[in-house]
Design a protein around this nucleic acid. Structure first.
Length: 294
DNA sequence: AACCAGGCGCATA
DNA sequence: TATGCGCATGGT
């Protein structure tokens, strides 16, 4: 029994895991907000995705979340951590609400959670994300998996290993259509497969060191490194700054991120990113795109 | 049909 | 340190 998850009490059925009275978890807001790229919405509003070599079909009905095809072992070993279910988002959002602007951004999509993905997949995903759009990122990631990943159940594929990609040439990756990012993926794969970079210890290093380690990879700058650390290594103190966050910060937080978000900057970042990118009111209020200068 | 996309590496001042 | 440009590809 932990204080952080007073309400999480999973019920394990034969081949499902059910979470009753779940709060602070909206599937669409969490799985379709640009932090992960392997989740696909079904016509009925449920989502299907792959992580850690496992398929998960997840639906949300009447305040209950159902993880279809997920047994107790996989829930405890994978999805509990992946969906960050041991963190009290109500408490965090309450803390954020000290700042009225941040309160507005969190209230806009209060069901966002920050996923804890595999470090290697997160690294590759955000290498692919540079100068790219979400739709095409998903396509490239999907082709990467179906072409180079191990088949798993149900016709799905695991994310390809660093070892596999390390043996590839840029020509081998041509069918993926990753463009100039192909050689970045290969460089990352070679450094990880050789052991030069150990993704599993990045969560232990000081932020600057972890960042510098990842930035040895060609094609990994500070933004991609911060995304890999936030989404892949659980570094919720990381605050990746992309074009959207830059615009949002200039308009909404000209004096910087408020102190009430300091402990969970990465979670605040995800609320702000989603708000800036999808809230119609934002561009009007801030006139973000038309603003030439201050 | 241009313009842009969850940037980065490189050249130049 | 700061700016500007090209980059592969395709979505809008």
């Amino acid at each position: 029994m932990t204080l952080a998850t007073p309400l999480l009490s999973p019920v394990f059925q034969e081949n499902n895991t059910v979470l009753h009275n779940i709060c602070d978890f909206d599937l669409q807001q969490t799985l379709d907000c640009g932090q992960a790229f392997r989740w696909y919405e079904q016509p009925d509003g449920s989502f299907t995705g792959v992580a850690f070599k496992k398929v998960c079909h997840i639906s949300h009905l009447d305040n209950n979340i159902i993880l279809h095809g997920v047994n107790q072992a996989d829930f405890e070993g994978i999805w509990r951590g992946y969906f960050d279910l041991d963190r009290d988002y109500s408490q965090i959002k309450q803390q954020f609400s000290v700042n009225p602007v941040l309160a507005k951004a969190t209230a806009y999509a209060p069901g966002i959670r920050v996923l804890k993905q595999e470090p290697w997949e997160a690294l590759c995903s955000f290498i692919i994300s540079q100068n790219n759009n979400v739709k095409r990122i998903k396509g490239i990631v999907d082709r990467l998996c179906t072409t180079f990943g191990e088949p798993i159940s149900g016709g799905f594929y695991a994310f390809p290993t660093p070892e596999t990609l390390a043996r590839c040439s840029p020509e081998d990756l041509a069918p993926i259509r990753a463009g100039f990012r192909a050689r970045y993926l290969i460089d990352a794969a070679q450094r990880v497969a050789s052991g030069e970079i150990d993704l599993e210890i990045l969560h232990l290093l000081p932020l600057d060191e972890a960042r510098a380690t990842l930035m040895r990879i060609t094609g990994v700058g500070i933004k991609v490194a911060d995304c890999a650390l936030l989404y892949g290594c659980g570094r919720i103190d990381c605050f990746p700054i992309d074009v959207w966050i830059r615009r949002a910060m200039d308009c909404l937080f000209p004096d910087g991120l408020p102190d009430c978000a300091a402990d969970y900057a990465g979670i605040a970042q995800q609320y702000i990113f989603h708000y800036a990118r999808t809230c119609p009111a934002f561009s009007k209020e801030s006139n973000a795109k038309n603003r030439v200068s201050l």
